[in-house]
C-alpha cells in the first residue's frame, strides 16, 4: 500500500526525467550530426546555465517568468480547458504594468506603487484571457482559437500603444519611456547584476496558492469534478461554465506576474513583443510538470536552465546555436505527451 502510494507520486517525476534525458539525447545526436562533440555541447549548456553568478541569476529570472506562464496553462487545464494565449496575456499584463508605473503620482510610497503595478498586470492579464475563457464557457466557442486571436490582437494593440502613443523620445526602438527608478525591483546583489528579484517569490506564492486552492478548498474540488466529469458536476449542481471561466481567468492572471517581472524586474519599460515566446514555452512547462504546482516549479527551473544555458552555444560552439534548445524542448514535449496518453485516460495531464 505504502509503496504503491510512493510510486504514484514518483512515477510522473520518473517519466519526466526519462523524457528530459531522451530530449537531451536527441539534441546531442543532432549536435553530433552537425559535427560537434555531444559531451561538450551538454557541458556548454550546463556551464552556460550555472557557470557564473550572473548565469545563475538569469536562470532565476527565467524561472520566475516560466512558473507564471506554466501556471497560465496548468490552472485552466485543471478544469479541462486549454490556454494557448499566455503570449498575449503576458504582453497585456506587461503593458498595463508599465503604463501604470509611468503615470502613478510620485508621492506614493514605492512599496504601494509596486503592489499596484503588480495588481494592474495581474488583473489586465486575467481579463484579457477571460475573454477567451468566457467565450468558451458561456458561448461554446473554442478557447484555443479564441486565445490565438487574442494573441494577435494583443500584439497589435500593444504595438500601437508603444509606437503610436507612448514611444520613448530618447530611444530608436519601439519601447516606452523608463519607469521611475524607485519602482524597479531591487536585484539580488549576489547575482552580479542579473535581473533576479523578489518577483520569484511572487511566482512561488502563486504556485503555492494554486496548490492550496486545488487540494484544500471546495472550489478546487469543483474544478476537479468539472474536469473529470462535466455531467457529474452538473448533477451536483455546480455551474460548469462558471468553473471553466474562473479557472481560465486565474490562469491568465498568472501571466500578469510574468509581465510585471519583465517590466519592473528586468527591462524597466515596455518593449514591443517583449514576451518573446515565453508564453508558448508555458505549454511544455505545464506539460512536463503534469499540471501540478510542484511539477510546474521544477520544470520551469529546468526549462529556464536549458533556455539560458543554450544561449552559451552561440559563443562556444561553432556548428550549433541556441536553437538546439527548442528542438530538445519539442522532443521532450513529444515524449511526455506520448507517455501521458499511454498511461492515463483522457482529460488529465
Amino acid at each position: 500500500m505504502k509503496i504503491h502510494r510512493i510510486w504514484t507520486i514518483l512515477k510522473p517525476a520518473f517519466f519526466a526525467m526519462v523524457s528530459v534525458m531522451l530530449g537531451l539525447l536527441v539534441g546531442s545526436l543532432l549536435a553530433m550530426l552537425a559535427g560537434e562533440d555531444p559531451i561538450k555541447i551538454i557541458q556548454v549548456i550546463i556551464s552556460g546555465a550555472f557557470g557564473t553568478a550572473h548565469d545563475r541569476g538569469m536562470v532565476i529570472y527565467f524561472t520566475t517568468i516560466l512558473i507564471a506562464t506554466g501556471l497560465a496553462v496548468a490552472i485552466p487545464f485543471q478544469a479541462g480547458v486549454f490556454n494557448i494565449g499566455a503570449e498575449g496575456q503576458t504582453l497585456i499584463g506587461a503593458m498595463s504594468c508599465a503604463l501604470l508605473a509611468l503615470f502613478l503620482p510620485d508621492a506614493l510610497p514605492s512599496w504601494l506603487a509596486i503592489c499596484l503595478c503588480f495588481a494592474a498586470a495581474i488583473i489586465a492579464a486575467g481579463v484579457w484571457g477571460g475573454i477567451a475563457g468566457g467565450i468558451r464557457a458561456f458561448r461554446g466557442g473554442h478557447e484555443v482559437i479564441g486565445s490565438i486571436m487574442l494573441n494577435f490582437i494583443a500584439a497589435g494593440v500593444t504595438g500601437w500603444l508603444v509606437v503610436g502613443k507612448f514611444q520613448s523620445s530618447d530611444s530608436q526602438n519601439p519601447e516606452t519611456a523608463m519607469i521611475p527608478e524607485n519602482l524597479k525591483l531591487a536585484r539580488f546583489e549576489m547575482f552580479d547584476g542579473a535581473p533576479a528579484t523578489l518577483a520569484i517569490l511572487a511566482s512561488l506564492i502563486a504556485a503555492a496558492l494554486f496548490w492550496v486552492v486545488i487540494e484544500k478548498t471546495r472550489a478546487g474540488f469543483r474544478v476537479k469534478v468539472v474536469c473529470q466529469s462535466p455531467d457529474a458536476a452538473q448533477v451536483a449542481g455546480y455551474s460548469v461554465p462558471q468553473v471553466r471561466f474562473w479557472a481560465f481567468f486565474a490562469g491568465s492572471a498568472a501571466c500578469g506576474l510574468a509581465g510585471a517581472a519583465m517590466v519592473l524586474g528586468e527591462a524597466g519599460r515596455f518593449r514591443m513583443e517583449m514576451s518573446e515566446g515565453f508564453g508558448f514555452l508555458g505549454i511544455p512547462v505545464a506539460l512536463l510538470g503534469r499540471g501540478r504546482p510542484v511539477g510546474v516549479v521544477l520544470s520551469a527551473f529546468l526549462f529556464a536552465a536549458l533556455h539560458h544555458g543554450a544561449s552559451a552555444l552561440d559563443i562556444e560552439a561553432t556548428k550549433v546555436t541556441r536553437d538546439l534548445a527548442q528542438v530538445i524542448e519539442a522532443v521532450v514535449v513529444i515524449f511526455v505527451v506520448a507517455q501521458v496518453r499511454l498511461s492515463h485516460s483522457r482529460g488529465a495531464i
Partner: peptide, 20 residues
C-alpha cells in the same frame, strides 16, 4: 495524444529545428 499539445510540439520542432 492531445492534438493541441502535439501541434504545438510540431511548431516548436519547426522553430528550433530549421535554424539547426
Amino acid at each position: 495524444t492531445d492534438q493541441i499539445v502535439s501541434g504545438t510540439a510540431v511548431n516548436m520542432l519547426a522553430w528550433g529545428g530549421i535554424p539547426v
